[in-house]
């Protein structure tokens, strides 16, 4: 079955050399709809579990709870007019600003019957992000960043500033079409002040949307000392993230009873297990490292 998630090649040099990889910049609603369709197909056994990495155009993405706020529609129209169209996602948390300078990643697998905790899924998703960030010479950690947007226990932070946010959606019944989407947005090359200003502008109109501070947010472009091979940073990050995620998160998805579409040997050759050193420095590293080795979570 072809990937429902659109894979139009953005043409960036960063996509070269990644067999089967894709970096896309579709409409945000199109991307979220495609992700939902893919997840339903995974839940129904029509599509293998997998990791998806993509980019999107500029948008504000809200939760369903926020979309039910009385002022939501009133705020959405002027924001769209000012270059920030609004979309709604199924996972929890709060408002999130995305753009071509952010990279999205989703781990999608059939909903397990039991024995899998939300925490283990968060760690499985955070691990490749932390490893990939470290490849640019930046040390990140899992830590809540209180004044950032969409703040949560599993924020990824660089010296107290949020660089990535994670969220999950566990949908439907296990064994009968249910699925899990664990998704993250990583800020690679966006201006934190612009991201914060967009969310705060919406919050000024719509009560119930949390305001945030630009000082609590950062981007890899601001932190990285090793900028890679000269191609644009979001493309570089996307390619590296997908390869790392395939090597680390593949075992997690495969251990839930289905085989991933990604060949683990191909990606383990591309990414030596030296990344495990980083895993052991992460809280609950023993658990995450066992996930990489393919042991049950």
């Amino acid at each position: 079955m072809a990937d429902p998630l659109p894979r139009a090649n953005h043409g960036g040099a960063g996509t070269a050399g990644v067999a089967g990889g894709y970096v896309t910049v579709p409409d945000t609603d199109q991307a979220l709809d495609g992700l939902d369709r893919t997840a339903r197909a995974v839940g129904n056994g029509e599509h293998q579990p997998g990791i998806f990495v993509w980019r999107m155009r500029r948008a504000l993405v809200f939760t369903r709870r926020e979309a039910r706020l009385p002022g939501f529609a009133r705020a959405a129209s002027p924001m769209a007019s000012s270059g920030w169209p609004v979309s709604v996602r199924g996972s929890g948390g709060g408002a999130c600003a995305v753009g071509p300078g952010t990279v999205q990643i989703a781990l999608v697998f059939p909903r397990p019957r039991d024995g899998v905790s939300l925490d283990s899924v968060y760690h499985a998703l955070a691990t490749p992000i932390l490893i990939t960030i470290s490849e640019f010479g930046v040390k990140a950690e899992i830590a809540r960043v209180p004044r950032s947007f969409c703040s949560g226990r599993y924020d990824i932070a660089v010296e107290g500033r949020k660089i990535a946010g994670l969220a999950q959606q566990w949908h439907g019944p296990a064994g009968r079409g249910g699925y899990v989407i664990a998704a993250a947005s990583v800020i690679i090359d966006e201006d934190p002040a612009e991201l914060a200003a967009a969310i705060n502008s919406f919050a000024d109109i719509c009560d119930g949307v949390q305001r945030c501070s630009a000082g609590a947010i950062t981007a890899l472009a601001r932190e990285a000392r090793e900028m890679g091979n000269g191609t644009d940073l979001p493309s570089q990050f996307s390619v590296r993230l997908r390869n790392t995620a395939a090597a680390t998160s593949f075992s997690f998805a495969a251990g839930l009873g289905r085989q991933s579409q990604i060949d683990p040997d191909q990606h383990r050759r591309a990414h030596p297990v030296s990344g495990l050193r980083t895993l052991r420095n992460i809280r609950s590293g023993r658990q995450v490292a066992s996930i990489v080795r393919g042991e049950p979570a």
Binding site: R65, G90, S91, G92, Q168, P173, G178
Partner: peptide, 11 residues
């Protein structure tokens, strides 16, 4: 239910 930025369907 909502737990730590996760929406979780109860069946």
């Amino acid at each position: 239910i909502t737990v730590e930025k996760t929406s979780f369907d109860i069946v």
